[in-house]
Amino acid sequence: MNIVVCVKQVPDTATERKLRSDDKTLDRDAADGVVNELDEYAVEEALRLKEAHGGEVTVLTMGPDKASETIRKALAMGADKAVHLVDDALHGSDALGTSYALAQALKKIGFDLVVLGSESTDARTGVLAAMLAERLGVPQLTFANKVEVAGSSIAIQRVTDYGYDKVEASLPAVVSVVEKINEPRYPSFKGIMAAKKKPVEKLGVADAEIDAAQVGLANSWSEVADFAAAPPRAAGTIVKDEGDGGVKAADFLASKKFV
């Protein structure tokens, strides 16, 4: 099975994240770049599927040069090779532009299965996997907490507000995974060493047959009008429990008409 797993480099959620004042895009230099956490679950799931069914795992990332760190991490976990979609023309692409660029790259790479994290911790739109399914014309198997492949059939459990849906489809397909689907492995020392020798192919906009008029900040379907740091919340009242903490909290609730 030919599995492509899409990973994204995002600013560490533990550091202060900012937008750039010049073009209002994410300031990638302000914070440390890390692998989007949910994508580690996607890599893990891809590796498990390969271990069970054979085949190859290719990492696909779109992002600036710096995103190669993210590729290395996924390769160190055990992926076989990588494709890095990198081109200045891609900077500032919104979800529509990004999904278009990735879909073009995926068509070029070829796949039986595409695996993604269900959302990124920076943009948090949660739409990319659905958009890829739409663009590629393949089944959408998203928000999976369980994936099973048998021959050319695939079944997932799709997490819903009330529990989960069992969903079935045929390959090729797009799958997105949620947090508790598995426990991502740590790269071993051997894995880290091996990753250095694994092939990473760089693709530019022209190589992936991406129409430059459909990507990048200037061609986005939406724009940031303006932004500002959120005003801090007014300081609240903090009391120490002296046997009546619950009563005081209830008084507060009553003062706000919650009881």
Binding site: V239, D241, A249, F252
Partner: peptide, 25 residues
């Protein structure tokens, strides 16, 4: 830092007491 109202204490004491008060009121 975010709280409009905070109780520094053991939740095992504070939460049940708060529940009782809410029910009472």
């Amino acid at each position: 830092e975010l709280a409009d109202f905070g109780v520094v204490g053991d939740l095992n004491q504070v939460v049940p007491q708060l529940t009782d008060e809410v029910v009472k009121r």
